[in-house]
Every structure is written in C-alpha cells, then in structure tokens.
C-alpha cells in the first residue's frame, strides 16, 4: 500500500490538473496525506476556528491532531508524524483486533478476519493521515481489556477512541454487555465496568464543551458539519438515496453506497457466529448513522470501524478455497484504492 502511494506520487498520477487538498507537498508519501489529512494538520498546527459560511475544521474530532502535535513536538514534520502514527497504530490495531477476535469468535475466524481487515479494499485509509487507525487500535484495545476485566485501561482506551471519531461511542453497547456479562459471573468490579462503558460517551461530550470554551460556540461541530453538507434529519437516509440519482452527483458516491450495503451484509453474516446483538447493533449504527446526514459520502471509510463486519467476512471465508482468492482480490482492490486517492475523497 505504501509502495502504491509512492508509485502514485512518482508517476504524478493523475496527470489532470485537478485540485486535491494536500497535493502540493513534494513528499514521496504525500498521497497518504491528501483530503482531510490537510484539515487534521491545520488543527494540529493552528487549532480550531469556526468560519461561518465556509468549510471549517470543528467538523473534525481532536485525537489525531493532538497526537500529531505531540509527535511534531519531538521533531517530526507533521506529514511524517501523521504517516508514522497512522501506520504504527494500524499494526497495533490489527494485532489487538486479532486478540479480541480470539475471545469473541473462534481462533480461525479471528485470524482470517484480522488478515482481511488489513487487506480490505478501503483499508488504505488506515495508512492515511486520518484518525481511523488510531481509533481502530483504541477500540480493539478497549474491548479486549474489558473482556480481561481491566476496566480502567478499557475506559482510557474507549475514551481515546471516541475522541478520535464520534462513532466509536456506539461501542459503549458491547462494553456495557461485557460489563453485565462479567457482573453475572460475580468477578466484576461493577462500578469500574459501568464507568468503562460510559467512558466513550463522556469523551464525545467533551468535544462540544471544549469548542464552547475555546471558540465560544458549543454547536460549532454541528454548524461545521452543515457547511460540509451534513445535517442530521429524520429523512436523511431517504435524501442519501435520492442524492445517488441526482444529475451531476459525484459517481464515487456509488463506491460508498455499495460498500455500505456490503458492510451491512457482513454484519448480518456475523450473526451466524453467535455474536450478541450489542455488537451487531454497534456495527450497524456505525454504518447507518452517517446516512442520516443525507449522504453516502465517506460511508465506505466510516464502515471500516464496524468491527463485526470483519468477523462476518471471516465467517464467510472459512474455507481456504474461498479465502485465498478473496485475499488476492482484496489486496488488488486495496492497491487500486490507494492509487485512486487523488480522484475521490475516501
């Protein structure tokens, strides 16, 4: 994937002079810092500011910029810091997800799922200067530590995940389910267990409070989201479907719509593994809730954090005859996905 990013940059692909945020950097791996990566860097460098009437940065959660700033303080450039951190977190995330899988599903499904998560066609986002890999690592560790009864660590990791992407708070559901299940066995510290389940929600709530303090606007996040064309409405999913057929609509939306359907199908397949409903609900909410803002845009990326989807894929590819071709296909699509970064925001 990194090689594809370097190749894409060297070949000066695509040749058309389309404007891509971040494309002006001469760095060999700058392909991995395009689009929202520019916004995360701006926040790390200059902080938040809501600018009415135009797209502005309070739409982005603060964990990744905070981490970027910390690494930049050690002497790395923002771009290098972002790429090192995203890819380091990806390795931690995949290992933690494998360990989590061994406790939730069978060992063979856990192994296949972790492998497919790393080679999933959209997984190039995990290598980009985006928060997804940090959130994957924090989420997997939070759930893993909860299953081991290490509630304080679980709470810390859960809070970190939700500070990276708000969707992480949906995993409060499986965390609560784990707390209840361990409570029944009588080996739980119920207070800390419930606290761990509440941690992601508490963490998400601090972001608007911070914006209220720093830029004097508690609603800055939702106002900035509207400027990006996202606003929660009851008929949001209907609007999202209609948007697909509007004349002049970005054709890449179909990639997001197709992957949305695939994620939901895989989560449904995960049911066959006996996964309890809080896990399935959390996964489905991650995929479906962004649609309530009236667009499929980036749903393919948001769905990367729907962990049960990978277990569903693992369950469907238990047989080696299916697994190997799928892995090869997935890896090919992953390289293709990396090369198409300049063409469409993931």
């Amino acid at each position: 994937m990194v090689a594809a990013a370097v190749a894409g940059r060297r070949l000066d692909w695509p040749h058309a002079s389309i404007h891509v945020p971040g494309a002006s950097s001469p760095h060999a791996l700058s392909l991995l810092s395009y689009w929202d990566g520019v916004w995360y860097r701006t926040i790390a460098e200059r902080g938040y500011l809501l600018i009415p009437g135009r797209q502005s940065d309070p739409a982005f959660f603060p964990l990744f910029p905070i981490a970027l700033r910390a690494l930049h303080g050690l002497g790395f450039s923002f771009l290098t810091a972002g790429i090192v951190m995203a890819n380091g977190a990806l390795i931690v995330g995949i290992v933690a997800f494998y360990e989590l899988g061994r406790r939730v599903v069978s060992a063979d499904v856990a192994e296949t799922s972790a492998l497919l998560a790393a080679f999933f066609p959209m997984s190039f986002v995990f290598s980009m200067t985006y928060p997804e890999s940090l959130v994957l690592a924090a989420l997997a560790l939070s759930l893993l530590w909860a299953l081991s009864g290490r509630w304080t660590l679980s709470a810390l990791a859960g809070a970190a995940a939700a500070l990276g992407r708000p969707e992480a708070m949906f995993f409060a559901l499986p965390l609560a389910a784990i707390a209840v299940a361990t409570g029944r066995t009588g080996r739980a510290a119920p207070g800390r267990a419930i606290g761990a389940a509440l941690a992601p929600i508490a963490s998400v709530a601090t972001f608007p409070l911070y914006l209220g303090w720093a830029i004097k606007n508690v609603s800055a996040w939702s106002l900035a989201q509207s400027a990006w064309g996202r606003s929660f409405e009851l008929n949001g999913i209907v609007r999202a479907v209609h948007q697909l057929h509007h004349p002049g609509t970005n054709p890449w939306l179909w990639r997001d719509a197709c992957l949305c359907v695939i994620y939901l199908g895989l989560i449904a397949a995960a049911r066959r593994l006996g996964l309890s409903w809080p896990w399935l609900l959390a996964g489905a909410a991650i995929v479906l809730l962004p649609l309530a803002t009236g667009t499929f845009m980036s749903d393919a990326r948001f769905g990367l954090l729907a962990l049960p989807a990978y277990w569903g894929l693992g369950a469907l590819t238990r047989r080696r005859a299916v697994r190997l071709p799928l892995l090869i296909l997935s890896a090919g699509l992953l390289v293709a996905g990396t090369l198409t970064i300049p063409l469409a925001t993931p």
Partner: peptide, 11 residues
C-alpha cells in the same frame, strides 16, 4: 458512584 466518578474523571 464509582462509574460516575470514573466517567467524570475521564471527561
């Protein structure tokens, strides 16, 4: 109380 305390401390 412990749950609320932990969540509040993390917040």
């Amino acid at each position: 109380s412990i749950a609320a305390g932990l969540a509040a401390a993390l917040a």
